[in-house]
Nucleic acid binder design. Structure first.
Length: 214
DNA sequence: TTCCAGGCAATAC
DNA sequence: GTATTGCATGGA
């Protein structure tokens, strides 16, 4: 059922090229997707992805992208710069992403952490203030290419709609179920989560394209 | 105007 | 362990 869902979504939407990375355009930085690119990330790319994972918490990517681009424009999208930045200038730069005081602190906590732990484990990430299950898994999967499945609100909603899991099913249960069923590499987990987000964004309110799976 | 977006921590039971 | 609340902007 889960594998079938993955194949249906991939067939429907094609490769998503997550995680989007900033690229300089005519009017400032915009994020871009790179379908089919599953190569190793540079240190700078990894940090950008992790910062994006924090900035997009409970916030649309459109807003997180603005905040990320502002950090890039100001030249403070690195652990060193974020550590040395004043709290006010940091929160000011990321204003568009909302929760800017909390997220400024989260960025600082993560920046300090990542300098001491270049290749963090899931448990280490979860010990950092501001990093929960989804953010930790997003960082591991999209920045560090660790084969792990990311669960989010879209996943819980879609799985509930399809009767795969109960609406109130917890994070870990869903994550372990998918990983047990799929036994996949980082590429498939990468695509699967991205496809779920893409699909659920496009289909709100719930659309009929997945009817054959119900 | 209201609702909600790629969550998390603190607090209260 | 589960439920509730604060955090905050900006697009639809």
């Amino acid at each position: 059922m889960i594998k079938q869902l993955y194949m249906e979504l991939l067939d429907l939407h094609g490769p998503q090229g997550w995680w989007p990375l900033l690229r300089k355009g005519r009017d400032g930085y915009r994020s871009e997707y790179f379908p089919g690119d599953f190569g190793k990330r540079s240190e700078r790319e990894r940090f950008e992805i992790c910062a994006g994972a924090i900035l997009t918490q409970n916030t649309s990517w459109m807003q997180a992208e603005k905040a990320l681009a502002a950090l890039k424009e100001k030249g403070i999208l690195s652990p060193e710069k974020i550590i040395s930045a004043r709290a006010g200038s940091l929160s000011g730069a990321i204003r568009a992403a909302g929760y800017f005081n909390q997220k400024a602190r989260k960025l600082k906590e993560f920046a300090r952490f990542v300098q001491a732990a270049p290749m963090p484990t899931r448990e280490q990430l979860l010990s950092v203030w501001g990093i929960g299950n989804e953010t930790a898994d997003s960082m591991l999967l999209y920045a560090y290419r660790v084969p792990t499945f990311v669960v989010d609100k879209y996943t819980q909603r879609l799985f509930a709609e399809l009767g795969i899991t109960a609406p109130e099913e917890g994070y870990s249960r869903i994550k372990l179920l998918v990983e047990k069923e799929m036994q996949a590499d980082h590429k498939a987990y990468n695509e699967f989560h991205a496809l779920i987000v893409r699909h659920q964004k496009q289909c709100r309110p719930p659309c009929q394209v997945m009817a054959k799976l119900k």
